[in-house]
């Protein structure tokens, strides 16, 4: 059964009298224990999607239509009281910058204990024991000492571990990690990613990883969703998306990686920039940067079609599939 299902989600921002669409018709499902990655450039709407799942979209943004269901409970229409139950306890979030998430004037311990005690009635002493145990489980050395320290006394990787410990306290079903390792070094990044993976496997938690690092994504996620200009353009098993990208944008994104070009040669950049919210073109939003764009792409928005095990929204792929089918039909005749 689906743990989380997002259906035809539209999120708009009301800015200067204009109603700008940040997310358009986004649908996906997340099963128990599944790890999904959302990739795309900045401004593609990855983070907005993460925020809207826990209904954290602030004004001027609002959820225009669509539904987000957590085991048949609709999140978009929940009262703040019920939402409080969902946030943290069912769905937890890890943000990019651990220094911004932790309160700089409270000790690590105080923040852990607060998180436990705001959701369960428990004595301070018991809460402290749980907190220390969780700090230990995220491989923080000498947790008793760290318990009384302030966030600024810890390194970046250590802070992110503390955040993960806070997330683990309430044993949520889903962790949404919004670029959890972008601010960290490669060696620390490798450790945090491994830790996240282990935790999700051991507790059968579902993970929604928002990232622009395709290397990280390929390590972690089972399925990958590629977003461009507020829409999902490709979705499929991670290995399939990375080894056989269908959508021209996914291809461009992968080709732009330095390891895809010969050393010392020019990199294969995608021409142009992603259109900003108020200048989204008609038709497929990628057409201005797409090497295969036709007149049809400029006028119509492509629908999702199944291509192998992935689903893609692209007319070029659609044409190729119909041609292929026609050919095989003719041959069989």
């Amino acid at each position: 059964m689906n743990l989380l299902s997002v259906n035809n989600l539209h999120v708009n921002f009301h800015i200067k009298g204009q109603d700008l669409a940040a997310l358009i018709d986004v649908s996906f499902t997340l099963n128990r224990g599944e790890r999904i990655a959302i990739v795309g450039e900045s401004g593609a709407g990855k983070s907005i999607l993460g925020f809207s799942i826990v209904n954290l979209i602030d004004k001027p943004g609002y959820i225009k239509s669509g539904s987000i269901k957590l085991q048949n409970k609709e999140i978009t229409t929940m009262t703040p009281r019920l939402l409080q139950e969902v946030r943290g306890k069912r769905i937890a979030m890890i943000f990019q910058d651990p220094m911004m998430t932790l309160n700089p004037v409270l000790t690590i311990g105080a923040q852990l204990v607060e998180a436990i005690r705001s959701h369960t009635r428990i004595s301070f002493k018991d809460a402290r024991n749980i907190a220390i145990e969780k700090l230990h489980s995220v491989q923080i050395a000498s947790p008793e000492k760290r318990f009384n320290q302030y966030p600024h006394e810890l390194s970046g990787g250590m802070r992110q571990r503390v955040i993960i410990a806070i997330v683990l306290l309430l044993n949520p079903d889903i962790i949404i990690a919004d670029e959890p390792t972008t601010a960290l070094d490669v060696t620390i990044q490798a450790e945090i990613i491994q830790l996240l993976l282990d935790i999700c496997r051991d507790n059968s938690m579902a993970l929604l990883l928002i990232s622009h690092d395709l290397g990280v994504v390929s390590r972690v996620a089972e399925r990958t969703i590629v977003m461009y200009a507020g829409r999902v353009v490709e979705e499929g098993p991670t290995l399939e998306v990375i080894n056989d990208p269908q959508h021209p944008y996914t291809q461009g994104l992968l080709n732009a990686l330095p390891q895809m070009a010969l050393p010392g040669q020019r990199l294969n950049q995608i021409q142009g920039n992603m259109p900003s919210l108020n200048e989204r073109p008609t038709g497929c939003a990628f057409h201005s940067r797409c090497p295969y764009a036709t007149d049809k792409c400029r006028q119509q928005q492509p629908d999702f079609i199944q291509s192998g095990v992935s689903s893609v929204a692209c007319f070029m792929v659609e044409n190729m599939i119909t041609e292929f089918e026609q050919n095989t039909d003719e041959e069989s005749l």
């Binding site: 450039e41 461009g252 732009a256 990199l267 950049q269």
Partner: peptide, 11 residues
């Protein structure tokens, strides 16, 4: 910078 923009600047 993003991956695709990184490629532009590096080029």
């Amino acid at each position: 910078l993003d991956v695709s923009v990184q490629a532009q600047v590096l080029n």
